[in-house]
Design a protein around this nucleic acid. Structure first.
Lengths: 197, 197, 197, 197
DNA sequence: CACTAAACGAGACGGTACGTCCCGTCTTGAA
DNA sequence: TTCAAGACGGGACGTACCGTCTCGTTTAGTG
């Protein structure tokens, strides 16, 4: 990476962070390009130089950026886990906690719920495959019920994880015990022998 | 319902349909209140009289309206079914086909995915409960695996149905055979005894 | 006048008074037909039935109505006068006091002087002739300077009266003594012999 | 004046001229901000940038601007005159001709079918003092009737000039001879000795 | 006294203009 | 050259009135 690219990347990062802050403070639809520029200490023209697609490209970029940051942290959270159960428990808990504590997400959910949970759904196929891919190695070194296909099992688990993150139903994902019971009784039942692990 | 309410409801319906048509043709963000008014054969002022919240209220109303219409059709599609398997097969197939053929949805998904899905996702909890509620009576008169809780099973099935509608994965939901296999091998396995029904 | 005409005239009067009150309270440009209707205890439709020309006709009618009322009162003020000097003194004082205390006029002159331009100017010629006509009989029974044409003198006096009403200059028209001096020294000088009356 | 101020003043002038043209063509109440913007070759937004008070501020500015232009031209017309009589004759004639040829005023006059002239009544006090100030130097070097106060005479003449501009009465101000007779016989009589100048 | 015709209240509606806001483009001047 | 500063066109938004119209509902005058 040349110094100029280095600089460009830094400015881009600054713009994304600034836009993110604005959205956190004022909501998505009330955040203008002007706001983001001021927050970044740049002029509006510069924003358009870095995001020629204008406002929509900027918003999409911020979403993708935050999405990537989230999965980066999630990956850090679970990479040290040893067992499948631990991965799922810590992953579920972390994901739920992240959403719970996510200022921007919470702000949007409360004030303009119709604006943006989209990405979760839009990215859902990709996200699901990502989760499945993370789970596969743990499933491979796990004792499975006979006749269980690892790919299928990972796919199933990924679906269920996403589903419970989106709507926990009667489970309280703040409570580690309940998360543990959900993982073992509901999600892994049928995948692994009851008494294993 | 008084005649005036009757009239108001008809006008409201006309506005919703008109707005829906505009969104189908030009996309969500390119549809202006003026467009909707012209399509409905009304003046812009009248739109604001029926939807004081302006554009956003109108858009939300259109989404809710189409959402209700979809579930109305889905309900019609499955209400004559006898067995749980048939309900799930026809429901899955109908939902998938509806989404596949849904001009507005497809248009938005391709051109501006970040505009509509928020609403869909927001409704996800409600939708899931709705699906579960529809499934409960079928589960009750169905032969279940011992120790299976009907509520739990319905919740689980609803989650899986939503998940597969959103991302079918390797299954081709256009193919009735594959839908049947998905329902029986993947979704109902563990819920009902293998050879039952 | 038939009873129906009688009733129509009363309603018309009520509308004019109501509109006048609204203008006094909220100014001319902020007074809507709706306001006037509400103030008159009538519906907007009725206003349009009595003033088919709509708002502009209504406004003009109110101006003409108040204009006529003003001259009616002015006439009452001066009709008992005996001498030319008395007519002019009382007339000037009354006119100045009326304008000074005229809530609507003061309000409009301060907040929207550009609204009155047309009307005031339009009436100016007529007003001047009206004043001149009132003065003529007093001039006829007055001792005039030799060679003075009564018509010309009346015209001249009317012009001066209007001018001093509009802009008193250094004279304080609130003070009867100053008014008297203005009339005798400035206006009637040259018209009548200095020591007459 | 910095270049940017220079530019701003030019644009402002352009807007005023454009608005003036629109009023001349379509009348005051039928001239919209959109019309003025189009005529000026600018966008409506720019009009609001230069006249934040919107339509009313714009209209007032146009009136003041035209008022100043009128007196500028009147001053040019009169500044080369030598005698008091010449000033008054040329001034009266010019003012009357200006009003006669004034497209905007004439347009308004067509809307109000009453025959009438100027808009100077409301501004009368200021205008009158302006005229008086112009006349003072001519009076000072003029041979006056004994005991005549120059200030008073100027004030009187200004009032009469304004009055005759507003309503010429039986005089035809198009005819130079009649103007001359009006000035000498009616206005200056009593101010100057009959045979002087 | 009933009956019919006019007047009226109520309010929906189309239309127009307003003033605001923000986007995306472009120019200009300074570092 | 790069970037800030900001003017500008464009366009949609939401609001406010206006003038028209259509309904029912009085309210009178008449047979």
């Amino acid at each position: 990476m040349t110094p100029v690219d280095q600089h460009a990347a830094e400015v881009r990062e600054r713009i994304l962070q600034a836009t993110y802050d604005c959205v956190a403070r004022w909501g998505l639809s009330k955040t203008t390009v002007e706001d983001a520029a001021r927050q970044a200490g740049l002029s509006r023209a510069t924003i358009y130089r870095y995001f020629p697609g204008g406002r929509s490209e900027l918003v999409n970029a911020v979403v993708a950026w935050e999405y990537a940051r989230f999965f980066g942290r999630l990956y850090q959270e679970v990479q040290a886990c040893d067992s499948l159960e631990e991965v799922m428990e810590r992953g579920l808990a972390f994901a739920h906690r992240s959403i719970r504590e996510h200022e921007v997400l919470q702000r949007i959910l409360q004030t303009e719920p119709d604006m943006l949970l989209p990405t979760l759904t839009v990215e859902s196929t990709g996200t699901q495959q990502l989760i499945a891919a993370v789970l596969v190695p743990y499933l491979m070194r796990h004792e499975l019920a006979p006749g269980t296909d690892v790919e299928l099992a990972a796919d199933f688990l990924a679906r269920m994880v996403l589903s419970y993150i989106a709507s926990p139903g009667r489970w309280d994902l703040e409570d580690p015990d309940q998360v543990a019971r959900l993982v073992r009784a509901e999600l892994l039942a049928g995948i692994v022998p009851p008494g294993s692990s």
